[in-house]
């Protein structure tokens, strides 16, 4: 009698619960650290310059997106950006009640962007795809936030003009930060702090 070796069935629930096969402990630690830094900068800038001050708003978004580009260069894996946004979102929710309603859709939007980037060859192909991933996911998140803002202001949609201006300013910060993050990746490689 002969027996053929069958591969052990994949425990998908466990894989999704623990990230086994997707992320190593060092990846999760790095994601946690970058999410913490992003939140710390946000808190500090909000305290120094006020949350609605256009300069701090742009600066906050710039630091955020630059950190995300660096994170994706250090952890170039599909799912890293979603996890980072989830952690930052949950922390904002726990501490400040931010994005209480929109969080699930923000997570789904980031995941969709990550699958698109994976289809383009994945983050390991270079920092330009990390830049694209952050640019698209931040755009998607702003569109979703605008939708929820519209729901809250549906009786007087003209009020949305203010929200649109705020979103545009913060996205300008995102774009500036993407450029800064991309330049910084090159420099950190030169310094030997990030390996190819």
């Amino acid at each position: 009698m002969s027996t053929s070796a069958r591969p052990a069935p994949v425990n998908w629930r466990r894989a999704l619960w623990t990230g086994r096969g997707l992320f190593e402990t060092r990846d999760l630690v790095t994601i946690g650290l970058f999410a913490g830094a992003a939140k710390a900068v946000t808190l500090m800038l909000a305290l120094v310059g006020g949350g609605m001050n256009p300069v701090t708003m742009i600066l906050k978004s710039a630091v955020f997106s630059a950190l995300w580009v660096l994170l994706l260069t250090k952890v170039p894996k599909t799912g890293a950006l979603t996890l980072a946004n989830t952690v930052a979102g949950l922390l904002g929710f726990f501490l400040l009640g931010q994005a209480v309603i929109s969080l699930p859709s923000l997570i789904l939007a980031t995941l969709a962007v990550e699958f698109l980037i994976a289809a383009l060859g994945g983050l390991a192909r270079g920092p330009h795809l990390a830049v694209l991933a952050v640019a698209l996911s931040e755009l998607a998140m702003r569109l979703i936030n605008l939708f929820f803002a519209y729901l809250a202001m549906r009786e007087q949609p003209e009020l949305m003009i203010m929200v649109l201006m705020i979103s545009a300013a913060s996205y300008l910060g995102i774009l500036l930060g993407l450029f800064g993050g991309w330049k910084m990746v090159g420099e950190l490689r030169h310094a030997g702090l990030i390996q190819d």
């Binding site: 999704l16 619960w17 623990t18 990230g19 997707l22 992320f23 402990t25 999760l28 630690v29 994601i31 946690g32 650290l33 999410a35 913490g36 939140k39 996890l83 980072a84 989830t86 952690v87 930052a88 949950l90 922390l91």
Partner: peptide, 10 residues
């Protein structure tokens, strides 16, 4: 745990 570990670090 996938979310708990990074959150703990954060």
């Amino acid at each position: 745990g996938l979310i708990k570990l990074p959150l703990l670090v954060t």
